[in-house]
Structure formats: C-alpha cells, structure tokens
Design a protein around this nucleic acid. Structure first.
Lengths: 143, 143
DNA sequence: CCTAATATGATGCAGGTGCATCTATATGCT
DNA sequence: AGCATATAGATGCACCTGCATCATATTAGG
C-alpha cells in the first residue's frame, strides 16, 4: 500500500485546517459587516472584470470552480438580492449574459475594504513577500 | 485602506483554489469507493486514538474544529450508520463518551488505503519532503 | 432535411450547515 | 441551602449543496 510520509501528512493537515480557519474567519468578518459572502464577491468581481458585454454563466462556473447547478442557484440568489441581472441574448438562445446592477457594483466595492483588511492582516501580516511567493509556488505544484 | 500585495493575494487565491480542488478530489475518491466522507474519517480516527475510555463530544469538536451542533449532528449520523456508540456515564450526567463500534473500526480501516493513496499520490507525488516541510511551516505562520 | 448527440441552464429532492435557542446538569456566590 | 451562571449536548428553522434529471436550443451525421 502507498504510504504517505509524515511530512506529506503534516503538510496536508496544515493545508486543511489553515484554509478552513481562514475561510471561516473572513466569512465571519463579512457577515459581521452585513456584507455578502466570499463566493458572491468572486462572482461580482468576475462580472465586473468582464466589462460591457457581461459574462456567460458557464464561464463563471469554470473560472470559479463551481458546478453548473451551483452557479445557477448562486445567480438566482444574487438576482433576487438585486445585485446582478441576467439577459438572454439573440446569439444563442439557450444562454444568457450576466451583468452587475449598480447595487452589485456597490456591494463589491463595500466588500473589498473588509476583504483587503483581512488579506493584508492575516496573510500579508504573517508571510513576507518571499514567503508568499514560495507558498504560491508550492501550492501550484499541487494543482 | 490596507492594501494587500500582489504576492499576498496570489498566495491566498492559490490556497483557496488548491485546497478546494484537493478536498473535492478526495471526497470523490471516497464516494466512488462507497466509503464515508473525510469528516467521518477524522472522527473515527480521533475516537480510535482516544482508546478504551472513549472520548467526549466536546473534545472532538475542539480537535476537529467543528461547531458544537455540527459535531452533535455528525455523531447522530454516524450513530445511525452504526459506526459509533454514545454512552452517558455516571461522572457528569450532562456528558457522554463516544466509542467506535466494530463497524466503525472497519470503516476507518477501509478508508485509510484510499486516503493514503490520495496523499501519497496527490501530495507526496507533487512535493518533495523538503517542499512539504516548507509548506507546513508557511501554513503554520498563517494559523 | 431529419434525427441523434451535445451544450446551456433550471429544478425536485434529500441531506448538510449556521444560527438561535432549549434542556439538563454542574458549579459558584452569598 | 438558594439562586445565578456556566457547561454539555440537542434541535427547529432557514438556507445551501449534491445528485439526478429536465427543458430547450444548437450542432453534427446520415
């Protein structure tokens, strides 16, 4: 049987517990500030980056690593919350394009300072720039 | 406003996406082999490590970073599945001690090869021992 | 052209999670 | 002792997620 080394196991356990703790931490910060959760931020940002023409749900899925039904429902909720708008367009009538509403743009802009504070504090405050680069490179090896 | 560096942001994004992908990957492997999910394995292992006297739910919560209600319900499900057993004991009648059933022990032992294969392959195969140590140390700085 | 296969997105259902609250027991304070 | 406080664990409710499947539109193959 393949047996992972102690070092491998320790790295994995650290990865699991640290990422879990950090995600819970930022989610708490956002909730405490009455803001949308992290997943919403990512969607808002991707839509904003996409610009004028909006973006297709299936592109969002791919970029954000969500299953199709997950993105479908996330967009439902964000639509209900008035942060985005979906339009079917003539080209391919199966599909749609997603756009930010002004409220969506505003929400993204209100989230960023909280998120930035978290990142600067919890990540930037703990890792030097060199550390951060090393870590990113090691993580990429795992991807 | 605190602004996180590019390096900080890249490390964070890598942490999020890699840990997410890896967790999904092992969960898929376990499901495909008709085994219990990762969280159950951790619980089974902690109980087994605790030995003869069993372990208290609140200790499991602390060690596995689960909220109280989360552990309560996880133990419900594992109990229903016949993998664990809960006993109230005379000392403190608010509390209980949790034990493995033989089926629980067997489940843990069936999960391990799959988990070990995943770790050896996806983590050990991608990171040298030195890499793994560096990564664990960097992650600990974030904890 | 007509049919099969594929792509895009939605949805019913079962089960998991967060939050607040509840019950029961134990401990501390006066 | 008597009452407030704290600790251990369970639970109702709303919401979220995974899985399977559906509906519709498009593309490919004969």
């Amino acid at each position: 049987m393949k047996t992972p080394s102690k070092e491998t196991q320790a790295a994995w356990r650290a990865l699991l517990s640290v990422s879990k703790s950090l995600v819970e931490s930022i989610e708490r910060d956002l909730k405490a500030a009455d803001l949308a959760p992290l997943a919403w931020y990512d969607v808002l940002l991707e839509i904003e980056k996409a610009g004028e023409d909006g973006i297709r749900p299936f592109e969002l899925q791919e970029r954000l690593l969500l299953p199709q039904y997950g993105m479908s429902r996330l967009l439902d909720r964000m639509d209900t919350a008035g942060l985005i708008r979906r339009e079917t367009f003539g080209d391919d009538r199966r599909g749609q394009s997603v756009f930010l509403t002004p409220e969506g743009k505003a929400m993204r802009e209100r989230i960023w300072p909280v998120y930035a504070g978290f990142l600067a504090d919890r990540i930037g405050g703990a890792l030097s720039e060199k550390d951060a680069i090393v870590m990113r490179d090691l993580l990429r090896k795992l991807a």
